[in-house]
């Protein structure tokens, strides 16, 4: 049913931003220098703000729930974020590369989502794109700085690439609800994103004097405990549960608690 697909699609967009934003917020107070600590905290804030806009819309579509219910009271299997978002931050290089892949994806996705026939998704995309443009710029500069920096920084970002590349394919592998929404001009056809995404990665990697990634992103789904992992369909790594344990603790322990 189209309405169900729209709700799932909206939740998918919300979950991507929330989980990525929550991960980045783990750097708050721990950034390598003050300016970058502030930068990454600001990016986290933007992403969590974007997720609120999506959750509010999803809550309105579902009826009978609030944005807080959707963020704090769903189980890991109900979350639809990409696996890339939930992966642990690792060191600064891994965090930067994760954010660069993610921001490039959001940048092209929101550019197209503005054209959605759903006016609310279009409005959120328009608002978010301005912020994501900044995220992309900032993370690109850092990829270049690390890749073209010292021997150590280069080694670290190359290691990050090795660890993250297999998770990029998932971005372009549509779930049923994404296909359904794309077919109805509500969502974005992911097939059209891949080339733009890849070109941006190649361009920034060249500036960073990093070798181009091996091949194009393939949807390699990790095998885990006999289950094919696929974040968009709720089959997550154990890392998502770790985030939820932390993020949902208060609401689950003290239901309805407010500041």
């Amino acid at each position: 049913m189209m309405q169900d697909s729209l709700i799932d699609y909206t939740l998918h967009l919300a979950d991507n931003s929330l989980i990525m934003g929550h991960r980045l917020s783990e750097w708050t107070g721990h950034g390598p220098i003050l300016e970058q600590d502030i930068a990454i905290s600001n990016i986290a804030l933007d992403l969590i703000g974007q997720s609120r806009n999506f959750y509010q819309y999803a809550a309105q579509l579902k009826g009978g729930v609030t944005e807080d219910d959707l963020a704090y009271l769903r189980d890991a299997t109900e979350f639809k974020n990409m696996l890339l978002a939930e992966l642990p931050n690792g060191d600064w290089a891994k965090t930067i590369l994760k954010l660069f892949f993610f921001s490039t994806y959001q940048y092209y996705l929101y550019q197209k989502l503005i054209g959605s026939t759903d006016t609310q998704l279009s409005a959120i995309a328009e608002k978010s794109l301005k912020e994501v443009t900044y995220h992309l710029r900032w993370s690109s500069e850092w990829v270049i700085r690390l890749g073209d920096g010292t021997e150590e920084s280069k080694k670290r970002i190359e290691k990050a690439l090795e660890e993250l590349w297999d998770y990029t394919g998932e971005m372009f592998l549509p779930s049923e609800y994404e296909s359904e929404c794309a077919k109805n001009k509500i969502g974005v056809d992911l097939g059209f994103l891949k080339e733009d995404w890849m070109n941006k990665v190649i361009q920034i990697f060249a500036e960073a004097t990093l070798p181009s990634p091996k091949g194009e992103p393939v949807p390699t789904l990790r095998e885990g405990q006999g289950v094919r992992l696929n974040g968009k369909e709720g089959k997550h790594t154990e890392h998502l549960q770790e985030i939820l344990n932390d993020m949902q603790y208060l609401q689950r322990t003290y239901p309805g608690c407010e500041w």
Binding site: Q36, I38, N42, I43, D46
Partner: peptide, 13 residues
């Protein structure tokens, strides 16, 4: 420019 992000989301340093 010292940093693209300043004391709040709307400012740079």
């Amino acid at each position: 420019l010292l940093s693209e992000f300043g004391s709040t989301a709307c400012k740079a340093l």
